[in-house]
Every structure is written in structure tokens, then in C-alpha cells.
Amino acid sequence: MSQAGAPRITAFVCNWCTYAGADLAGTSRLQYAPEVRIVKLPCTGRISPLFILKAFEGGADAVLVSGCHPGDCHYTSGNYHARRRWGLLRKLLDLTGIDSRRLQFSWISAAEGQKFADLINDLTAKVREAGPFAGANPARKRLAPAPEEAQGPRRES
């Protein structure tokens, strides 16, 4: 978390549904927590697992991935491809210490401005409650190895 304990939330959203849903939250003047930063992609299908790893590496306290509801993808199936990808990646990251409080997936349509605002508020509250990720974030950039981490080879299953 950066200054004053404000969590950092990076959102990867598609252009056609969730970005437009966030626009609608704006035109409807719905207020939500200001910590989210949106990176716009054409489709959730464009989002590589490396984007998420990079965001955590840079110190994001949470990452949000959001696109069109199943069946509504502007590109017919990009979101389905993405969903399958996340079905595996989120489990892998959870296994290694980035759990579902930190990695949120959502379908938000262009009509769901309220849902977008609610989601950002919920996610922000959840991340605040979980506390800063920095210390526990296994992906976090550190400039030197922590002394207790420097260990010799040891075989284990």
C-alpha cells in the first residue's frame, strides 16, 4: 500500500463491456473508492497471465480482471478463452500465496455501472481489511534477497 494506507488496485478491463460500465458509473455519478487504476484492453482475451504477475510484482494490493458476461463478448468468445485461463492461473497463484482476496474476477456489462461501483468499493474494503500485501506478496519486487532466504540446495518433493 502506498501513502496513508491506500491500497493499490490494478484493473484489467475490456473496452466493450466493463470499460463502458465504468463510464456509466461516471455518467450516473456513482461514488466509489479512488484507488483503482484501469488498464484498458480490447478484450479480456488479450490479458496475459504476465500482466497480472507484473501488476503484483509492482506492488498491487489487488488485481481485478473484468469483461463482458459469458455469451456477450464483442469478439464472441474472447471472454470464454480468458475464463479458462483464469480458472487455472488463479489456482496456481492461490497455491503460491496470492489468494482470492487479492485477485478478483468479474463480468460487468456496459449497463452495470452500479455493479462496477459496488465491486470497486467491496474490493477496496476487502483489501483494506486484508491489510497491505507488500510483506506477504510473493511476487513483489525486492532489490536483494532477504538473508533468511539465501539457502543452499536441498532436494524435496
Binding site: 496475459s48 497471465p49 504476465l50 504477475l53 507484473k54 510484482e57 487455472l88 492461473l89 496456481l92 497463484l93 503460491t96 510473493p138 511476487a139 513483489r140 519486487k141 525486492r142 532489490l143 536483494a144 534477497p145 532477504a146 532466504e149
Partner: peptide, 25 residues
């Protein structure tokens, strides 16, 4: 450079995650 090549925590994490993920299925 998506994955830092330095043998430090973040690059090591990213490398091991992406290696494993690329093998999924």
C-alpha cells in the same frame, strides 16, 4: 521484459509461475 532475469525473488516467482502455467494441460 515481463520476467526479470535477475535471480531475485520477484523474477524467480514470475519465472516459476509462468513456467508452470505454460505447462498447464
Amino acid at each position: 521484459q515481463w520476467v526479470s532475469t535477475a535471480a531475485l525473488g520477484h523474477g524467480n516467482y514470475a519465472w516459476n509461475m509462468i513456467r508452470a502455467f505454460h505447462q498447464a494441460g
